[in-house]
Design a protein around this nucleic acid. Structure first.
Lengths: 332, 332
DNA sequence: AAATATAATGAAACCGGTTGCATTAATAGT
DNA sequence: ACTATTAATGCAACCGGTTTCATTATATTT
């Protein structure tokens, strides 16, 4: 039923080969012939079958956006969601499509029917084990990793400038607001992002010659409840901090909740700063001071980098750092 | 380089045809042959090329998740995000993949390279014009529409039970809390969801014999800022309401912000209820009373329904209503 | 005008599977 | 033992494009 290449070829009185070439602007066809073919194509509203095309060219125009199945939310995650949004936008502009996949483990990742051979490349978010990255490389699938890094040869890594963001927050607390007893609430420090933020936390203490208030408090997950729970632990100490730097906004919002519940005021008694600038950060009471991570840009850059990897196979690995911005609101 | 069907066929000493049939458990092959083939396939870790397979069977195993380009955010939207999450989960369980597309207008939607002929069906979120839905039907592409409805023959519609949710909120405000001056903040009433919520608002007035406080206040978009701005208009009246029913949580949170800013307390001076139960609703101060819309389930049901439409072409249209739940928190 | 170079075209193979139909092997019937 | 069925298998066409290579039409050179 749908119009096929052979249809317009016949109508134009040429072969499939010529028709195909004409539509791709090959210099091998006479200008006159090309016009004729295009005219007919236009007339019949011909659209090439993308599967057949992918089959023949070994280019599907599809890239994968891979998430870890362990812990939903996937795309409704306050970080991944906007990243995906940016990726969609960029992909759409460049004629690519994004297919989503959530896998349990490495084997699963590559068993995924479509990953196997039908995508031109992939983006990895979440915290994938290093071997997965290696396996992509082994199979020669172009890959871009978001917010993680591992030594390798042919990948791109798009990373928020966590260290500088954390430094900015800390200098704001120390220099602009004069704090010197600052608690740090974070999640798994093994993760590069949290680790970099922690390093900023430490280094600014050193730079401004103030001593640590305490070791970091570690939440089990990045949730409001955990932020609240961990903050309660902080509040149970005799010696309270005057400020809290939470490694994510979600944790920060939980912390604010706990502080208010304890009858203290934010920022008068304890100031709170977060990281990410998620939607809820500007809607909280008080609005949260944080670091705005340009997640849309991360997504866009990831797609851009991926397309580069695709079109220049063998391109050496590189790290793309996305700048962020301190947003001072009323919580500090 | 990758293992092809012909490879394992040769290794097993059979033809491609037999190999293919063996792998699909066709009753045409001898048990013994099948075992041999499967063994070889296992050995070489054979994975069929999904594009070739799609090409031959005219089934790609891909479904589209279509969004409107007009107003990002796409997937980071507090409603669409979780819906997509649910869809991912269900699709993943059933061996389907989801490809994302954002289009500007109808033409664009169908020009989208991949939509054309490579997806088995599609889900429509956002507020698509009716003609788009008709066009899908005309082309015979299985379609599921989320949160909208239009008379048609072969589609499924997955819709939150907006009317009952709104009634629940209103009865809570009226009966449990004794309010009788209730303002309604909403967005474009043309949209079926908002319209149904509004009907609930009206009908409960009638049922409980209380008269309307005012006409609905309409925000230009569903944003915190708009919620706040519109609430300020309400607050500028001499005769203040004792409660506000906002058609979305985002608007409700904006309203709370405006109320607090005006020096009034929530819920003591003015109670506020929202709708959706987005993540921020439980993190606000005070935590928001709202209707929990099971967006994950909406996404899962959409995929389930879509797969049904795909496997039973010509199946008549139906509406699938997803139940919701009143969540009473401290804002009322 | 003939020989040679170059521009356009088409036939056919290919991408990697699935499936209709003809054919051969195995089993059943008499 | 010989034919009639039925069970297994393979050949080849097909899905809808792209691309190599041979071939024909046109232009250039002498």
């Amino acid at each position: 039923m749908p119009v096929k290449l052979i249809d317009i070829a016949r109508l134009a009185g040429v072969s499939k080969a010529t028709a195909s070439r004409a539509l791709h602007g090959s210099p091998l066809v006479k200008e006159e012939t090309r016009r004729l073919v295009m005219e007919k194509a236009e007339e019949l509203k011909y659209k090439p079958n993308s599967l057949a095309q992918a089959m023949a060219t070994k280019r599907s125009g599809i890239v994968g956006f891979l998430m870890y199945k362990k812990n939903p939310p996937y795309v409704s995650h306050s970080f991944f969601g906007p990243v995906l949004d940016g990726a969609i936008e960029e992909a759409s502009n460049r004629g690519y499509h994004i297919v989503l996949a959530a896998a349990d483990d490495m084997e699963d990742t590559f068993d995924e029917h479509f990953i196997q051979d039908s995508i031109d490349g992939a983006m990895l978010v979440s915290f994938y084990p290093k071997e997965v990255i290696k396996e992509f490389e082994r199979r020669g699938i172009p890959l871009v990793v978001i917010n993680d890094f591992v030594e390798s040869n042919n990948n791109a890594f798009v990373i928020d400038d966590n260290y500088n963001g954390a430094c900015a927050i800390m200098e704001h607390l120390i220099k602009d607001r004069g704090h010197s007893k600052i608690a740090h609430i974070t999640e798994r420090l093994e993760h590069p992002s949290f680790h970099a933020r922690y390093r900023g936390f430490l280094d600014m203490h050193e730079k401004h010659k103030i001593k640590l208030y305490s070791k970091p408090y570690t939440a089990r997950h990045t949730t409001f409840q955990e932020g609240s729970r961990v903050m309660e632990k902080v509040l149970s100490r005799k010696n309270l901090p005057t400020a809290v730097f939470a490694a994510t906004d979600t944790l920060a919002l939980g912390a604010i909740h706990a502080i208010k519940k304890a009858g203290l005021r934010v920022p008068e008694d304890i100031a709170v700063a977060g990281y990410d600038d998620i939607a809820a950060a500007s809607m909280s009471d008080p609005p949260l001071t944080t670091v705005s991570v340009d997640r849309l840009r991360i997504g866009r850059s990831a797609v851009t980098a991926l397309i580069e990897q695709i079109s220049e196979p063998g391109k050496p690995s590189r790290v793309i750092t996305i700048k962020n911005r301190l947003i001072v609101r009323d919580s500090t």
